[in-house]
């Protein structure tokens, strides 16, 4: 297995606060890596650093053997990095179908320039995430769970090689979580490498090949889910010292 993404000693400071502190890890091709950590641990910052919406203060981000640290977000998207947002960012005034079509018009390798082709691709992506019947609704009209799926469909329409999922299960009930897990597994079967950030430990444990734990911006554990979740520092980070 070769590494598709390497994070090399990456640090990000916000005016005195160190959100991500000297984190290094690699993501192998075809793998699902789960990233967990308490609130404010720096998980979403990490996604921002990889997708290019935030520049790192120091360190290097290597995608498919090439440093992308200085590239803006749109260039990384064209290289094949797709992401979803925890606080969903649909295009509210566009139809659900056209929201996804934007991904097909841009995205990996600049996508297609043909609007009809992009819409057809968008229809397939909507079917993939189970949103077909809302295709002609405005994105604004979707509820929370629908918007989470829309985020996934938009990112998938970009034909990414690496998909960063920022809390796509937060706020969903058990049935909905199982459905999203099913979708993410199907995405992996397409050959897409996935980084999932999640709060719901049970869900992420069954989904991930490997787990990474971040606490106060630092990596405190990295390994197979069972081992990581029984690790003493990890339990302390989540439950406090006395219980551990």
């Amino acid at each position: 297995m070769s590494a598709i993404l390497e994070i090399v000693h990456v640090t990000r400071r916000f005016a005195g606060l160190v959100a991500v502190n000297d984190v290094s890890f690699a993501l192998n091709e075809g793998e699902i890596l789960g990233v967990i950590g308490p609130n404010g641990a720096g998980k979403t910052t990490l996604v921002g650093l990889i997708s290019g919406t935030l520049p790192p203060s120091s360190g290097d981000i290597v995608f498919k053997g090439r440093s992308v640290t200085s590239l803006p977000a749109f260039r990384r998207a064209r290289l094949g990095i797709g992401r979803t947002f925890q606080i969903m960012r649909p295009f509210p005034g566009l139809s659900v179908l056209d929201n996804v079509a934007v991904g097909a018009l841009f995205g990996y390798g600049r996508g297609t320039s043909d609007l009809e082709e992009a819409r057809q691709k968008a229809r397939r992506n909507l079917e993939f995430v189970g949103l077909s019947r809302f295709a002609d609704h405005l994105a604004d009209e979707l509820g929370g769970p629908g918007r989470k799926r829309l985020e996934l469909a938009k990112a998938l329409a970009m034909e990414p090689k690496l998909l960063l999922c920022d809390e796509v299960m937060a706020g969903l009930n058990h049935v909905e979580i199982d459905e999203v897990i099913g979708i993410i597994r199907k995405v992996r079967d397409l050959g897409i490498t996935i980084l999932v950030i999640e709060h719901v430990i049970k869900a992420i444990k069954s989904l991930s090949d490997r787990l990474l734990v971040i606490h106060h911006g630092e990596k405190i554990a990295d390994g197979i889910p069972d081992a990581v979740l029984s690790d003493k520092t990890v339990v302390e980070a989540y439950l406090g010292k006395r219980q551990a």
């Binding site: 977000a73 749109f74 998207a77 797709g82 947002f85 649909p90 079509a101 991904g103």
Partner: peptide, 19 residues
């Protein structure tokens, strides 16, 4: 479509590959 995406959500447009 790129322009509309910028109007609707500029950061969202950028991560989808809009310059």
């Amino acid at each position: 479509f790129g322009l509309i995406a910028i109007r609707e959500n500029e950061e969202g447009a950028a991560v989808m590959g809009v310059n």
